[in-house]
Nucleic acid binder design. Sequence first.
DNA 1: GATGAATGAGAGTTCATTCAT
DNA 2: TATGAATGAACTCTCATTCAT
Lengths: 204, 204, 204, 204
Amino acid sequence: MPTKKKPQVTASPERRRELLDTAAEVFAAQGYNATTVRKIADHAGMLAGSLYYHFDSKESMLEEILRTFLDELWSGYDAVLDAELGPRETLEALVTESFREIDRHRAAVAIYQKEAKHLAVQERFEFLAASQRKFEKAWLTTLERGVEDRNFRADLDIRLTYRFVRDTVWVAASWYRPGGQHSPEEIARQYLSMVLDGIAVRPT
Amino acid sequence: MPTKKKPQVTASPERRRELLDTAAEVFAAQGYNATTVRKIADHAGMLAGSLYYHFDSKESMLEEILRTFLDELWSGYDAVLDAELGPRETLEALVTESFREIDRHRAAVAIYQKEAKHLAVQERFEFLAASQRKFEKAWLTTLERGVEDRNFRADLDIRLTYRFVRDTVWVAASWYRPGGQHSPEEIARQYLSMVLDGIAVRPT
Amino acid sequence: MPTKKKPQVTASPERRRELLDTAAEVFAAQGYNATTVRKIADHAGMLAGSLYYHFDSKESMLEEILRTFLDELWSGYDAVLDAELGPRETLEALVTESFREIDRHRAAVAIYQKEAKHLAVQERFEFLAASQRKFEKAWLTTLERGVEDRNFRADLDIRLTYRFVRDTVWVAASWYRPGGQHSPEEIARQYLSMVLDGIAVRPT
Amino acid sequence: MPTKKKPQVTASPERRRELLDTAAEVFAAQGYNATTVRKIADHAGMLAGSLYYHFDSKESMLEEILRTFLDELWSGYDAVLDAELGPRETLEALVTESFREIDRHRAAVAIYQKEAKHLAVQERFEFLAASQRKFEKAWLTTLERGVEDRNFRADLDIRLTYRFVRDTVWVAASWYRPGGQHSPEEIARQYLSMVLDGIAVRPT
DNA sequence: GATGAATGAGAGTTCATTCAT
DNA sequence: TATGAATGAACTCTCATTCAT
């Protein structure tokens, strides 16, 4: 019986988006598994069953949240990568872009951080693994170019450096609150300063 | 009729430890909530119900895992702090100690990373919040001393720097595999080099 | 404010009939319980809620389908019984009439076969039980008359024979497809031949 | 995670059998879809969840009920077919065997009658379709041999005859109650008499 | 120490039904 | 007449936990 059961993509995409934002907030706060659909529905001011008018399942909400976030993230990243800047400028632009995404999709990023690793093995979430591979490649390439150009230090293990930069940026989602005292660009600036030049005072 | 409670501390503490190690491994791999006691029992070669001879509950296993880890962590940290080294040496010692703990308690650290934030609000896990406060104080103090001594840069937001250093170290638990090519000390050395001096090549 | 009830009998009775035919088809194919009002609405090209403009409930659709079928069936049967034919001719006429009904109301007959027994206990479907009683009486009387007249064999258990004839005819609804190679009259002829004379070759 | 979740085939097969018998009774009485696992559990004197210690799902209970029944049925049928009797004796033996199975597995047979058709399309219940094909072949062959040997009438549509005989026997499950006044053998005898020689009195 | 069987609460999901528009 | 969105009860199933043996 191949008739599409649920609307999947119903008319009003605004309601859908509202509900997904609510869900993302709860997933981020309590963890995906610990979040019941009843909690989501509570936050949305409706009954649990009513969510199923809009979505197929709890998992499909999760998928849509992550997919939407990654789509936007990559549209930003691709713009940076296509600009073919020098390695240091590329790194700066990627980090800045990342903090902007954290600012815009804080909940989705937090979910991603916590759940991506064990989700990626499921076929449904294969796109997470694909994104991770693409991500790794972009960063490693940038770092390698930077080492060649003598922008970045040659004495460091490059995979270790990649992980360092990657994690350093994204874990910020776990404490970042939009509308705080620092703009994403300001945070990016300070992070970049630390990552690039270190926190120690330079001997003159 | 003595106490009604479960044995809590049964005969052999080794069996207990074995079971907790098994549980930690599974919690780390799949997340606490997604881990059923059945899975733990499977890994331990017994039936779910049998675990209750050794432990009060799934939650008490989690508590014991985290408590044991934090106890050991703090015995290391306290030794460092009591030595009253200079701020830079203190930072180096704390980071090195942290990587040693990751090496020894990888599973517990991974669990801690993923679950601590939402657990800390429960009374039972108040010790997590306490540890976090103590942790924050130790680091902030060290950083402040370092800024005063002109060991560390004065132009950075100190809380941001604290988070940077803290996260930078602990997220390593998410990818670290004991017995790999790098010893914890070697990883610590490289991380410290990045954190202190940055990844950019210094102008000479 | 007139009656609070739903329109029950709305404007066009043709639309009603169309929808009932659709519903009957789906009920017959999937079973009443396994059929959702959504599936019916899908087949009718409308949304589930819209059906409630035409009908009170899913159950009332079922009731109307069965009632309509039985009304027509009995108008045929009554004509036969009122003709006061001999027992053998009555049996032949009843069987032929039955196959005509199967031809005309295949879906309703199939539903009846599958659901009548457990529905009949509900007050709402008392008419099913009533029909069954009337049905049984008509058949038993006919068979008894036939035995008296020496049209039918006297050595058979009469209730067993009744069930044999009854079931033999009606289960045909489960495989019969209108518009096939055999007309209902032809099928009736062959069934009657088997029922009356058996499938074995007669010794001459 | 390929670890077998549920015992599937646990130790005590008696308990399993008891529960399946209970389930079969309820399925037969109310229909599979209309039967809730709670009802089954009620009849078994336990809670709904407890059934899942013994079975994977409601559907797996249904499967096991039908499979067990068909296995036994075919062990009887195969014995008959392997005996290579004449067509009339084969028919008699198959019908008698069928009534014995109805006697032994009344509930399973009733379920089979009601649900087989729409279940057979699911992959899980492919064995139903396979059985039906085998069944059809056995009967058609027997009937054809009988026509050749001039045991059975040549003037009847053979597929129609097949359906007639098949249905005639199996619908008996819908009214048969074990322990009634007729033994299965006696019912078989009367049915055979009707099927073979008809219900009409023979002209002498 | 461990098993087998059960409990009971609560999870995700389905679905007949309602109703303002 | 029909739609879109929601309700609420009931469903199948999961799982931490208990306990007699």
